[in-house]
Design a protein around this nucleic acid. Structure first.
Lengths: 210, 210
DNA sequence: TAGAGTACGGTACGTACCGTACCTTATATG
DNA sequence: CATATAAGGTACGGTACGTACCGTACTCTA
C-alpha cells in the first residue's frame, strides 16, 4: 500500500503525519484482522491491536466499545466473502456442491474459535441487533440457496414451491455445525456427503411424493 | 499455644472439621454448578467458586488446572442427563420425537453460552482428549439414535442397514445446531420439523429407493 | 501412639487484560 | 489565525487468572 506518509520522528514530537478518520480506522481494522489471523480470537487483545496499528487503545475504544464489536467490524471488512452469485450450471447437484465448496473456505478463514468467542462474549440478550449469525430470513447464504433451488425449478428439475425452508437451509446449517464442532477441519468429503446423502434424497423424496 | 480446641466431630460447626478428598471435591463441584446456573459461564470465576464452597482457590487449582476443566467436571457430575434408554413404542416417529424431546431439556440446562465458552477456551489442539463434544463414534446420543433405528428395523418398519450415519445423526446434529445458534430458545416445534420434514422423508426415501 | 506425610486454609503476589481518565498536541475547518 | 475536534500518550483502577508460600489439621502407618 501507499507508504507515502512520513512516519513520526523518534522523539514523538512534531514531524510525523497524524492519521485521522478513515485512515486510522482502516489501520486499526487491518491490525485487528492480522491479529485475528495470527493468534486467533482469544489471543487478540485491544492493546496488541493498538500497538500493531501504531496507535493506542484510546483510539480503538473511541470507535468500538469492546473486543467483540471490533472483531465483527474487522470481519465485515476483511474476512473473505463467499460469492453469493450461485453458479447456474444446469444441474442442481453441481450448483449446490460448488456453492458449498465456495463458502467452505471463507468459513475456515474465520474459524470456529472466533465464532465461539463471539457467541460466548456477545451480550445477545440486550443488544439483539448485529448478531454474529443473522436470522434465516436475512441470511445471505440462505438466500443464495433459495436462488439455486429456484433455478432448478425454472428449468424443470424440481417442481416449484415444494421444498420447505428447513430443507433448503439444511446444507448450510450442517456445514456450519461441522465447522463449529470439528475445530475447523471440515473436509470436502463432508460436503459431498451432505449433498448426496441428505439434500438430494430429500429433494427427490419431495418430488416423488407429489 | 493458643486455645487449640480440636473438634473432630464430623458435623462440625464453624472452625471445626476440615474437609478433605471427596467431600471437599463435591463441595467445589456443587459450588461451580451453582455459579454456572446463577450467572452463566462467563461470570463464573474461580474465586467465586472457592468462596461459595467455603474454601480457597488453591484447593480448586489442586484438582482442576483451569476454569474449563472445572466446568466440565461440574457438568459431568451435576448437569441433567438425557435418558439414553430410548422408548420402544412400536412407531419410529414417536420414538425419535420423544427421544429428541428428552434431550432438549438437558441441552437447555447447560445452555449455549457454556458450550460456546468451553469450545472457545478449550485448548483442543494440544489436548485432543476429553472434548466438550465427543466424536460420533463415542457419542452416547448417536448410539441411542442407532438403537432406535435398530428397533425399527427389527420390527420391519425399516429395511436393515440402509441408513447412513449422517442420516442417523442428522436430528441430533440439527438440534445441537439450533441450540448453539438461537441462544438456547429452541421450541418443540423445531423438533417436529426436523423429524417430519427431514428425518422421516429421508428414511422413507431410502426404503423406497431399494 | 508417635511421627511423618499429605492436603486444606489462608494470604499474598505477579501477570494479563479491560476499559477509562486525563492531558498534550496535531490538524482540519471556519 | 482561532477554535473545535480528534489523535497521541500515559497512567490508573478494576477484575480475574494462576502460583507461591506458610502454617496447620487430618490421616495413615510403623
Amino acid at each position: 500500500m501507499a507508504e507515502s506518509k512520513k512516519e513520526q520522528a523518534p522523539n514523538g514530537g512534531s514531524g510525523g503525519t497524524r492519521r485521522r478518520g478513515d485512515v486510522l480506522e482502516n489501520a486499526i481494522l487491518q491490525a485487528a484482522w492480522d491479529e485475528l489471523v495470527e493468534g486467533g480470537y482469544n489471543r487478540l487483545t485491544m492493546e496488541a491491536v493498538a500497538v500493531r496499528a501504531q496507535t493506542n487503545k484510546t483510539a480503538v475504544y473511541r470507535r468500538w466499545p469492546n473486543k467483540a464489536q471490533l472483531v465483527i467490524a474487522a470481519l465485515v471488512k476483511f474476512a473473505p466473502k463467499p460469492s453469493l452469485e450461485a453458479a447456474d450450471t444446469g444441474d442442481l447437484r453441481t450448483d449446490v456442491l460448488t456453492f458449498l465448496q465456495g463458502i467452505l473456505e471463507p468459513l475456515q478463514a474465520i474459524g470456529p474459535e472466533t465464532i465461539h468467542g463471539l457467541m460466548s462474549e456477545y451480550p445477545g440478550k440486550e443488544h439483539p441487533m448485529s448478531k454474529p449469525l443473522p436470522p434465516r430470513s436475512e441470511d445471505a447464504l440462505f438466500a443464495a440457496m433459495k436462488s439455486i433451488v429456484g433455478n432448478a425449478e425454472k428449468r424443470g428439475e424440481l417442481q416449484p414451491g415444494h421444498l420447505s425452508e428447513r430443507v433448503i437451509s439444511l446444507p448450510i446449517d450442517l456445514l456450519r455445525y461441522e465447522m463449529l464442532t470439528t475445530h475447523g477441519q471440515v473436509s470436502e468429503d463432508i460436503i459431498v456427503q451432505i449433498v448426496d446423502e441428505l439434500f438430494l434424497p430429500l429433494v427427490r423424496a419431495k418430488s416423488r411424493a407429489d
